[in-house]
């Protein structure tokens, strides 16, 4: 197998992912660490039952935490032939044991399998303590597991990449003289109980369309502040967010009572908030200031008693 892999790699100078994995994976990563071990003082007939019950064909012999030998079906057959089935394992085991270290790469391990021809190897750490056991089955299983993990990761990445430029792709794929789509939210006035729902929903929708997080946050904060204003000072109104090729435009409209002095309203800290709004954590006179700071452009007009019209623009390039 190792030679085959090497030859194939040499043929077309292309290293497959599986071949790379043989270098990346270590023996410790694929071995089974749930090892059935035996003590040298147990008898050969006991090992027969142990092998049958655990469906294994060999086991490491451990004494005082140290590996002292290996016992296999072959040793058991030899003992049967020689009618020495009741002797301790110590006398029937193989003591000249070939081992692997858990930090060795899989490619070394496979080479050893082919060179020495055993079906299983005990795995030791560098202190010489037994950590596990490795068979060809473990190697195949380990490779399959890693392939499966990488396959899943690639799948997730591919689907993420598919989603990210959703909006850009939409505008590239669709032809018209003008394209835009609008999200409209109705805002209830005189209560803060639901304030922020529209901002949160809009932020979610834009996130799904692939708007980047810093811009998402700016749009979220600005719309939230606008929503708080509608809920605190007006009889209600609506927020219209329009996605355009260049960015997002948000219009906030209410039906009164309007603001007398717009310049004053835009001053940081100026507030006419009633106590109930202040008790709920708002009304510090920072709302419009925040909106101005978060948006790339802001238009603000108001007339008494008709109402207020706020327009914010956010550019994708900013």
């Amino acid at each position: 197998m190792a030679q085959d892999l090497k030859r194939r790699a040499g043929d077309d100078d292309r290293v497959t992912r599986t071949q790379e994995m043989l270098y990346e994976l270590t023996v410790g990563e694929v071995m089974s660490d749930n090892v059935v071990t035996v003590h040298p003082d147990q008898t050969m007939s006991e090992i027969r039952i142990l092998m049958r019950d655990n469906r294994i064909s060999g086991a490491p012999v451990v004494e005082n935490g140290k590996l002292v030998g290996m016992i296999s079906i072959e040793d058991l057959i030899n003992a049967l032939l020689e009618k020495r089935i009741d002797v301790p394992i110590r006398e029937g085991m193989t003591t000249d044991v070939d081992c692997l270290y858990s930090d060795e790469s899989l490619v070394h391990c496979i080479a050893k399998f082919y060179r020495l021809g055993h079906t299983r190897y005990p795995v030791l750490n560098r202190k010489g303590e037994l950590e596990g056991i490795i068979t060809k089955g473990n190697i195949v299983e380990g490779l399959l597991r890693k392939l499966e993990i990488e396959y899943e990761q690639t799948e997730t990445k591919v689907s993420a990449a598919r989603q990210r430029p959703a909006m850009r792709k939409f505008f590239e794929d669709v032809f018209a003289d003008e394209i835009s789509f609008t999200f409209k939210y109705n805002i209830v006035g005189q209560t803060l109980q639901h304030a922020g729902t529209a901002a949160s929903e809009l932020k979610n929708a834009l996130k799904k369309l692939g708007v980047c997080p810093p811009l998402l946050r700016r749009i979220g904060v600005a719309v939230y502040e606008a929503e708080i204003n509608l809920a605190s000072y007006t009889q209600g109104g609506e927020i219209r967010a329009t996605i355009e090729k260049w960015g997002v435009s948000v219009e906030v409209l209410d039906s009164g009572p309007g603001i007398l002095d717009v310049e004053q309203a835009l001053q940081p800290g100026y507030s006419t908030a009633p106590d109930w709004v202040r008790e709920l954590g708002f009304g510090a006179g920072m709302g419009l200031v925040n909106i101005k700071k978060c948006s790339d452009e802001m238009d603000f007009t108001s007339s008494v008693p008709e109402g207020t019209h706020l327009t914010m623009r956010f550019y994708f390039t900013s």
Partner: peptide, 17 residues
């Protein structure tokens, strides 16, 4: 960290990441 125990404290956290 806030002394505001109403929904707007959480809403603000959500909007402001």
């Amino acid at each position: 960290i806030t002394g505001l125990a109403n929904i707007q404290a959480v809403r603000t956290a959500d909007i402001a990441d």
